[in-house]
Amino acid sequence: METSDLIARASAGDHNAFRELVEVHSHELQVHCYRILGSLQDAEDALQETLVSAWRNLGDFHQRSSVRTWLYQIATNRCLSMLRAGNRRPRTTTTSPLPDVALPEPTGAGDVPPWLEPYPDVLLGGLVDQAPGPETRYETTEAISLAFITALQLLPPRQRAVLVLRDVLGYRAVEVAGMLDATQESVQSALKRARATIDGHLADSGSGRPARRPDTAAEHRLVAELTDALERADLDALVGLLVDDVRLSMPPAMLEYRGVEAARRFLAAAAFQPDRTYRAVPTRANGQPAFGMYVADPHTGLFRAYGLLVATIAGDRITVLTGFPASVMPRFGLPRTLPATD
Rank of each mutant, 00 (worst) to 15 (best):
D244F: 06
P251R: 09
D297S: 10
V295N: 01
R258P: 00
T283C: 15
F291A: 02
L302N: 08
T300H: 05
A263W: 02
D244M: 08
A280Q: 04
P298E: 13
A280M: 13
G292L: 09
M254T: 04
L241C: 09
D234M: 14
A253R: 03
T300A: 10
A285W: 08
Q288N: 12
R265I: 02
R264M: 09
R232T: 09
M293D: 05
L302D: 08
A262C: 13
A268D: 12
D275K: 11
P289M: 15
Y257Q: 00
G301I: 05
A269Y: 05
A262D: 12
L302F: 09
V246Q: 03
L248A: 05
R276G: 13
P289K: 13
E256P: 00
Q288S: 15
L242Q: 01
F272V: 06
A271N: 12
M250T: 07
G301C: 06
N286R: 08
P274N: 13
F303P: 00
A263H: 04
R304I: 05
P282C: 15
A233K: 10
M250K: 04
A285S: 14
V243W: 05
P289A: 15
A296K: 13
V260T: 03
T283R: 10
R304P: 02
R264A: 06
P298K: 04
V243Y: 03
A237C: 11
Q288T: 10
S249V: 00
A270T: 01
L242R: 03
V295Y: 02
Q273F: 14
L238E: 07
D244L: 13
G287F: 15
Y278Q: 07
L248N: 03
S249I: 00
D236F: 08
L242F: 07
A271E: 14
F272K: 07
Y294L: 08
Y278G: 04
R304D: 08
G287A: 14
P274A: 14
A253I: 10
R284N: 11
A268T: 06
A271F: 15
Q288F: 13
L302E: 10
G240V: 05
Y278T: 04
V246F: 02
A270R: 02
A269D: 09
L242M: 10
M293V: 08
V260S: 04
D297A: 07
V281G: 06
D236S: 10
V239F: 06
G259A: 11
A263D: 08
E256N: 01
A262F: 08
G301Q: 04
F291Q: 01
L235C: 04
A253L: 13
F266I: 06
